[in-house]
Write a protein that binds this DNA or RNA. Structure first.
Lengths: 231, 231
DNA sequence: CTAACTTAGTTGAATATTTACACTAAGGCT
DNA sequence: AGCCTTAGTGTAAATATTCAACTAAGTTAG
């Protein structure tokens, strides 16, 4: 077996998404029911083929799949990892490029009805959803959760689960939900201020509670690349 | 354009490697000269097709390519990222799964002669090698360097660039090389001890300098998974 | 053979950062 | 009016980090 160019094996390659949002129950992931073999009827992460004529690159393919399933066009999107093996799909060698997407609460609210038929939000319990998934998707979901939970420690990632404008108290609650522990208010505020993730929305105050609070928004996402430590 | 299973577009997919080692000049990367179109004669990261019958998964494919180019069978190997687009290869849509490999000094020494004809070590200067590479490989190399340099901060990754057994002074020098700055000896030792990356080789001392030094080795690599924060 | 030199490994004081918790103030609610 | 809840700040104690000196085990020069 030598390596001429025309030995090129072209494997089946899909883009799969772990799409998260916050529900009253905590962090939730969007799952779809498989309509065709293999794993017909099982729950799976939403995914799709790359469309050679539509998608200029992998991220565009992920964005398109996300829009098809949820209608959302401006998500937080981040490549997680690529798995490929002979055994993960019974039809043979296949590759899956997995992306993580975070949907804000208002994204989800807007699209409550418009969601593709068999897609449903399922609450995260521990390292997954508590029931089996098609292919190796349970393992992919576990990796995605690991990435998110580690990244809470050093990035503004949790901010993408809130509406565009939020208060510091709301943000702290999201951090606490993802970390599974309480944070000190004073330390949290100092850290946010030093990390320079946020900008105040000038003059805007919110009175969701019994006291008005300053409203913030995330600074331009591009600056986040500085903090990306993939894996 | 609807999405039946048999629409499945199977893109050209390769596994490419950014293989690093330490040379007297500092960090070096292994490059090969392309023998065929496109980019004939240009330098590129070593890579290869997936062999559907040989490779059980992507990591096995990366391992095989590494062995073909360097003879090394037990490298440090880590998936970096996957790029795929219409434009990165003039022949059309293609995908590259990129792995980072670190070779220890004794790996390199062993294989000085046995290396495939047109492969050469090139010193890293800043964010690359200082001359153009085929495809998007300059950009892939830049990402790999970013990953390595960030990971120095919180992992034992630099240890994989040394022989299996090394002294703390040698290890500190590698950290300093990768970070591009001097570290405090006392703080470095305390950190290493707390991080629990290393185990002493009982009873073994090295007298490379004018004073004998305790010899260490990395603890089982599997424990490193705890620290992996991809990207 | 001795004295000077080099480097492994440790110690400690000065400084900076984190943590825990109390405190003030601006409303809403009864 | 007075009490309650929550936004936002202050601060003292505990912990970490930094910087630099110190000890000890050799090697090398004279």
């Amino acid at each position: 077996m030598t390596s001429h160019d025309n030995d090129a094996f072209k494997p089946i390659a899909t883009v799969d998404l772990a799409i998260f949002s916050l529900s009253p129950a905590g962090l939730s992931v969007l799952l779809v029911r498989r309509a065709s073999a293999p794993f017909t009827g099982d729950w799976a992460l939403p995914g799709g083929w790359i469309h050679i004529d539509e998608d200029v690159d992998l991220e565009a393919a992920a964005r398109r799949v996300l829009k098809e399933k949820t209608g959302v066009e401006t998500p937080y999107l981040e490549q997680l990892q690529t798995t490929g093996s002979r055994t993960r799909d019974p039809r043979g060698w296949s590759i899956s490029i997995v992306y993580i997407a975070l949907l804000s609460a208002d994204h989800v609210a807007e699209r409550q009805g418009g969601m593709a038929g068999e897609a449903e939000w399922r609450p995260i319990e521990g390292e997954g959803v508590g029931f089996p998934l098609a292919f190796d998707h349970a393992s992919l979901l576990k990796e995605a959760l690991g990435r998110i939970r580690r990244k809470v420690e050093y990035s503004s990632l949790p901010g993408h689960l809130l509406p565009v404008r939020f208060t510091l108290s709301e943000l702290q609650t999201v951090y606490e939900t993802l970390l599974g522990r309480k944070l000190d208010k004073s330390a949290f505020r100092k850290r946010m201020s030093e990390a320079d993730f946020l900008e105040p929305v000038e003059g805007e105050m919110r009175r969701a509670s019994n006291r008005p609070a300053q409203v913030f928004r995330l600074k331009d996402t591009r600056s986040l690349a500085l903090f990306d430590r993939t894996i």
